[in-house]
């Protein structure tokens, strides 16, 4: 549990973060979204004290984060930045072992942990452990960056535009991997992004920031359905909104009784993908198939339209 209470940051006369109060529940992902200069990165960096707050308190699991020295605090919090920031002069294994080394873990424990993480991130330890960062692809570097942040098993992971340097196809894969990883490890993640799509896709809750203030902090469906201010509405993009709403839910939740002809749609696909398939096929309805390959019903244009409409 992360609690920010009336947190502000001033540089001279300018206030870059103004009186932010928000709580991130354990084992969830909070996405902070905003334009550049909105104060989102400063807010993130105050959590691990790379920036010291001018006012307010930040509590991690109920304890004020100023009760330990900054460097000890940071060893307990994973941190991933855009462009990964891998140490170019250290091998992949040494990079991942950074925090364990700082914590003085025994060699065998560190090695086992490095191998475990490499395997988790689909990088063969035998092949990748001894490589230098420049010998990896962009997607591999990004994964090593996340592995390094997770090395000492932190409860909290801070990510600043972690996928910013990746091309769209690799980014989609990295985002999906992060979601399944978080579901598996239960790590609390606070993620900063300028991309509302990414925030909607990854965040259990989204904080929209502008000019240092949090304008709205709510689950994605709420942000899309009931934007609190014109700025949030503009950020969400009125034209795209129905499709974003549909993209939040799987087809499984929109299944209706009945049997129809056509190419079946997977129950795990998003409702947005289902609508696209319906429109493309020209049919009013298509069958829905479960993960086991059983047809469990149909999904209809009319049904999805209703779900995409502004909630009352």
């Amino acid at each position: 549990m992360i609690e920010l209470e009336h947190v502000s940051k001033r540089y001279g006369e300018t206030e870059v973060v103004s009186d932010v109060t928000l709580t991130v529940p354990p084992r969830s992902i909070a996405a902070i979204v905003g334009t550049s200069g909105s104060g989102k990165t400063t807010l993130l960096r105050m959590i691990n004290r790379l920036v010291e707050p001018s006012a307010g308190t930040i509590k991690l699991d109920g304890v004020d984060h100023r009760s330990v020295p900054p460097h000890e605090l940071r060893r307990r919090i994973g941190y991933v930045i855009q462009g990964h920031g891998l140490f170019p002069h250290r091998t992949v294994a040494q990079n991942i072992a950074t925090v364990p080394a700082l914590l003085g873990w025994p060699r065998a424990k560190t090695k086992a942990r490095v191998d475990e993480l490499l395997t988790l991130f689909q990088l063969d330890p035998a092949e990748f452990a001894a490589r230098y960062p420049h010998e990896l692809s962009g997607g591999q570097q990004q994964r090593v960056g996340v592995a390094r942040a997770l090395a000492a098993g932190p409860n909290l992971l801070l990510m600043d535009e972690p996928f910013g340097a990746l091309d769209p196809i690799i980014r989609a894969k990295a985002q999906a991997d992060l979601l399944s990883l978080q579901a598996r490890l239960g790590t609390t993640i606070i993620l900063v992004t300028h991309d509302i799509e990414e925030a909607v896709l990854l965040g259990h809750r989204i904080a929209v920031m502008d000019a240092g203030r949090v304008l709205q902090y709510a689950p994605p469906s709420e942000i899309l359905a009931r934007p609190a201010t014109p700025f949030v509405e503009a950020l969400v993009g009125t034209g795209e909104r129905p499709f974003k709403l549909l993209s939040l839910k799987p087809v499984a939740e929109a299944v209706e009784q009945g049997i129809v002809e056509g190419e079946p749609i997977a129950a795990s696909a998003t409702q947005r993908d289902a609508l696209a398939a319906l429109l493309w096929s020209g049919r009013p309805a298509l069958p829905v198939q479960s993960a086991e390959g059983v047809i469990i019903g149909k999904v209809t244009v009319a049904g999805l339209s209703k779900r995409a409409a502004r909630p009352e």
């Binding site: 460097h71 605090l73 940071r74 060893r75 941190y79 930045i81 990964h84 920031g85 891998l86």
Partner: peptide, 14 residues
């Protein structure tokens, strides 16, 4: 590289 220095701070090095 600023990213590397930032990462070094972020991992908790003194």
């Amino acid at each position: 590289s600023p990213a590397v220095v930032e990462a070094a701070k972020g991992t908790g090095m003194t």
